[in-house]
């Protein structure tokens, strides 16, 4: 009886609570369970095909020991570090610059600016590397023409400078993430702060470093964390552009995990690499939060 009365009193809340269920169930089945499985699979010799897909053997830390002695793993660690660091700097600086243009009073043409700034972010990621073909071509590419203009030797971007090329494509395609986060943070700063600062004779630079930057500290950190997570995670560009080559010089960790699982069919080993990525994201996020002073 008591239960029935409780249900009657709280019927509205109960209906609202059921609203949560579809999302939660989907998340648990397709996000949480695979995550737990990744950890579990990484301790087995699971393969993508054959008997070991159905009856994997528990092999303890063997995958991780193999990982530590795997030169290609360390190579891709190094490559991933370079890629993430360079992309982080470029994507953040470009994004901040774009956000400042979008929010400043001095510069006209906000609608045009927003449309142009968002273009690369909106077109699908798969075509980003293709769009860059004309820039990176060795003989007639735009970049080499510019280099020639300044009397510099032209570069073989795709062969010799594959990493730099991928970083350029990535920062071209992805700076808008930081732009969106930072622009919305800057617009929410009350105008009065700047007016008062102007009355007291604060210069433009002072207004930026003393008002804007401290007030967008958390969005800055948030955007950096989001950028880092996206870069360490996404192998679309290297997959489309170089497939990890030449000589594993663009084999990012994420691509390595994919290759191990789907080209060499070592699902367990791939999962170990995937779990390493998760740990890296976790550690660096914590570090960034600590550095941000929270």
């Amino acid at each position: 009886m008591k239960i029935i009365r409780w249900i009657k009193v709280h019927s509205v809340e109960l209906i609202l609570a059921t609203f949560l269920l579809p999302a939660l169930i989907t998340l648990i089945i397709f996000q949480l369970i695979p995550t737990i499985w990744t950890i579990w699979f990484s301790f087995t010799d699971m393969a993508l095909i054959g008997k070991r897909l159905i009856h994997p053997r528990f092999i303890g830390l063997e995958n991780y020991v193999k990982l530590l002695n795997d030169p290609i793993f360390w190579q891709s660690m190094k490559v991933t570090f370079e890629y993430c660091l360079a992309s982080l700097v470029l994507r953040f600086v470009l994004g901040l610059l774009a956000a400042l243009y979008l929010t400043s009073k001095t510069f006209k043409g906000k609608t045009l600016m927003a449309a142009v700034f968002l273009l690369p972010y909106i077109i699908p990621g798969v075509i980003h590397p293709y769009v860059w073909i004309s820039m990176l071509d060795t003989r007639y590419g735009t970049l080499n023409r510019i280099l020639l203009l300044f009397g510099l030797p032209s570069q073989s971007w795709v062969y010799k400078r594959a990493m730099e090329s991928v970083i350029m494509i990535n920062s071209w395609a992805g700076y808008a993430l930081a732009m969106l986060v930072l622009a919305s943070a800057i617009t929410s700063i009350p105008k009065e702060y700047y007016e008062v600062a102007e009355i007291y004779g604060a210069s433009r630079w002072q207004r930026f470093t003393k008002i804007t930057l401290p007030l967008i500290k958390y969005p800055v950190m948030l955007s950096m964390i989001l950028i880092f997570k996206e870069d360490i995670d996404d192998f679309t560009y290297v997959y489309m552009f170089t497939e990890g080559g030449p000589h594993y010089r663009t084999e990012l960790l994420s691509l390595y995990a994919y290759h191990k699982a789907f080209a060499y069919f070592e699902l367990g080993y791939g999962c170990a690499v995937g779990f390493v990525i998760a740990i890296l994201v976790f550690i660096l996020t914590l570090a960034q939060l600590k550095l941000g002073g929270t």
């Binding site: 998340l27 089945i29 397709f30 996000q31 949480l32 369970i33 695979p34 995550t35 499985w37 990744t38 699979f41 993508l48 897909l53 997570k229 360490i232 995670d233 996404d234 960790l253 994420s254 995990a257 994919y258 699982a261 699902l267 791939g270 999962c271 690499v273 995937g274 779990f275 990525i277 998760a278 994201v281 996020t285």
Partner: peptide
Amino acid sequence: FILLIGFMPSMAKILPLFKL
């Protein structure tokens, strides 16, 4: 929990998705 799930790198869950 929801935020963390979304923040989990996709490489840390995408491989078992095939089996699932």
